Simulated scan of single mutants.
Amino acid sequence: MEPNISMEEERNHSSVVMFVLLGLTDDKKLQLVLFPVFLGIYLVTLFWNLSLIILIRMDSHLHTPMYFFLSCLSSIDICFTASISPRMLSDFLKEEKTISFIACATQYFAVSWMGQAEYCLLAAMAYDRYVAIGNPLHYSTIMAPGLCQKMVAGALGSGLLCSILETIPCFNMYFCGPYVIQHFFCNISEIILLSCSSRFITQTILFLAAVIVGFGSMLFILLSYVFIVASILKISSVKGSLKAFNTCASHLAVVTLFYGTALAVYMHPSSAQSEKQDKVLSVFYLIITPMLNPLIYSLRNREIKEALQRIIKKAAHFP
């Protein structure tokens, strides 16, 4: 049941300037252990994603729609993890894990924008794989640079719009206190619980965003793979079928990891006992996934390995 307070009480509670983030754990010794672990994960995430972006830009053999989308995915993952990790790392070393109202709103805005843009971008990448397998002779014509750029702009624009529509009503609610967020980042589901005004509009917007962007993108990806499988089954040779499937195996692995962890975070029942589980799942969704995405594409991709070898040979012969 939502709290019902008067307008005078709402004005009295509207001046919140700080939230307190409880973090992953309140064990100080464990925090000191976790700091180098998550610092290493963050640095590896930045290194692999930046390296992949640079490699794709430097090697002309990788100037194709698939690698254009992949470089955009790495850029989104860098922004995604950068909106979470630096704050979390600093909180490991702090006694008081406070975050200003504006910083909290900004953090959620960035997380929401990058997360929803990634949903849409993965859907665009699924369409790219369908065209490559289902219509290979017209692939370069269909997936022209202009269309690819519009698809990326659409993914970023959709994420931006949804993020604005979620952030503004949430952070315009009235908060009663205590201003304690039971998480290591400004999780909107935790912030809504702190409100003492009506939550209906914010919860409705969150639900619509989840259905339209999250489940809509997932449905589009599933349909794309239905057509991909149908196209693969039409290939007569086993070798050709395996080669066709291998072109989308990395994307399928990334989609499974991203959507699997996202569904685990947002679909499991909420309870006091599930708080620790929710934090662990959020770590995989927000911290681990951006690190693994470039590794999945790099380790399974012959073209990226060959491009890296070419760059190393050029560097070795550079006077």
Rank of each mutant, 00 (worst) to 15 (best):
T64H: 01
G157F: 07
K314S: 09
P178T: 00
L43M: 09
I304C: 01
L263T: 01
I212M: 11
S60D: 08
K314C: 03
P65G: 07
T98V: 06
L286F: 09
I41M: 10
S60V: 04
I288Q: 06
L257M: 14
V280A: 14
A124E: 13
A144E: 11
F184N: 00
I5H: 02
E118V: 08
L257A: 04
K94Y: 08
K239C: 10
L30D: 01
A315T: 07
G216H: 02
H63E: 01
P319I: 05
V131M: 06
L223N: 11
E2P: 06
F171R: 06
T167G: 01
V17P: 04
A244K: 04
F207D: 13
L30C: 02
Y42I: 11
Y174K: 14
C104W: 07
L299D: 06
A262L: 05
K313N: 12
P65E: 03
L70S: 06
T204N: 15
C196W: 12
L93N: 08
M173Y: 11
L73Q: 14
E95L: 09
D26H: 15
Y179V: 03
L223S: 12
L222A: 12
S158I: 13
R57G: 11
A124G: 05
S231H: 05
E306R: 15
W113A: 03
F80H: 15
W48T: 07
S236R: 14
I287E: 13
M173A: 06
F38P: 00
Y266P: 07
I312Q: 11
F171I: 00
I76K: 09
R57S: 13
G159K: 02
Q149F: 12
S231C: 00
V226F: 14
E118Y: 09
S163P: 05
Y67N: 03
N187C: 12
Q273Y: 08
E95V: 07
E95R: 10
H268I: 06
G214W: 00
L299E: 05
S100H: 14
Y285V: 02
I304N: 03
M291I: 01
G214F: 07
T204M: 13
I311Q: 13
F175E: 04
I212H: 06
Y179P: 08
R310M: 13
V226H: 07
L219M: 11
L32V: 04
I235H: 07
I287M: 14
Y127S: 09
L55D: 12
C72K: 12
Y130N: 11
V265Q: 00
M7D: 15
N135H: 08
F185P: 07
T167V: 02
E303N: 15
F47S: 08
T247N: 09
G177K: 08
E306A: 12
C196M: 09
S140R: 09
E10F: 10
